[in-house]
Computed example of a mutant assay.
Amino acid sequence: MCLMPHVQQIRIDDTSATLQLTVVPSLDYFPGHFPNHPILPGVVQVDWVVRLARQYLGVRCTGFSALRALKFSAPILPGRRLSLQIDWSPERQCLDFAYCDGKRPMSSGQIFFAIGAAG
């Protein structure tokens, strides 16, 4: 089972992380989404942000509250190399994120958690 991208490089700076990723063509999300034109589902992109924030920033993300400013600017295809910027704001209980292919934005948004539910 292949559920996560290949993380090639990581830069962590207190409450932010910049990751260089490869979207592995063998991800279990591609078959059926969409037949003959696979793209990475938006919900998976959001899930990766939460998982990677837990892993690399130590954020305890629970008590989901809202998604805001969510924008999918371009489809993410199998094999794509991306950078992912994640910024954790403990006072706002918010993860800001942006996936980019070079300078081209692919998707971005904010994930909010219930006050007191994330650390």
Rank of each mutant, 00 (worst) to 15 (best):
Cys61Tyr: 08
Pro41Tyr: 07
His33Cys: 03
Leu57Met: 05
Ala118His: 03
Pro105Phe: 10
His6Tyr: 04
Met1Pro: 00
Arg60Cys: 05
Lys71Gln: 15
Ile111Met: 08
Ile115Gly: 03
Pro38Lys: 01
Val23Pro: 01
Ala53Val: 02
Asp101Ser: 12
Leu19His: 00
Ala117Gln: 11
Ala74Asp: 15
Ile111Phe: 08
Val46Leu: 09
Cys2Gly: 03
Ser16Trp: 00
Gln55Cys: 09
Ala66Trp: 11
Phe34Trp: 07
Ser16Asp: 01
Trp48Arg: 05
Arg68Thr: 15
Ser107Glu: 11
Cys94Phe: 06
Ala53Cys: 01
Ile76Trp: 10
Thr62Asn: 12
Arg81Asp: 11
Pro31Glu: 00
Phe64Gln: 01
Leu27Tyr: 03
Phe34Asp: 07
Trp48Pro: 01
Arg68Glu: 15
Ile10Thr: 04
Val24Pro: 06
Ala53Ser: 04
Leu27Phe: 00
Ser108Leu: 02
Leu95Lys: 03
Leu3Arg: 08
His37Thr: 12
Gly42Asn: 03
Ala74Gln: 15
Ile39Val: 13
Leu57Glu: 09
Pro5Cys: 04
Asn36Trp: 01
Ala118Met: 06
Arg104Thr: 12
Asp101Glu: 14
Ala118Lys: 02
Ser26Tyr: 05
Pro90Ile: 01
Cys61Trp: 06
Ser65Trp: 09
Lys71Phe: 14
Phe113Ser: 01
Ala69Thr: 07
Gln55Val: 05
Arg104His: 11
Pro105Lys: 13
Pro90Gly: 05
Val23Ser: 04
Gln20Phe: 10
Asp14Pro: 06
Ala66Leu: 14
Lys103Ser: 13
Ser65Phe: 12
Cys94Glu: 15
Tyr29His: 08
Ser73Leu: 09
Phe30Val: 00
Trp88Leu: 05
Pro78Lys: 11
Ala98Gly: 13
Leu52His: 11
Gln45Trp: 01
Gln20Arg: 12
Gln85Phe: 14
Gln85Asn: 15
Leu95Cys: 04
Val59Trp: 13
Trp88Asp: 04
Leu21Trp: 08
Asn36Asp: 09
Pro31Leu: 00
Ala66Gln: 14
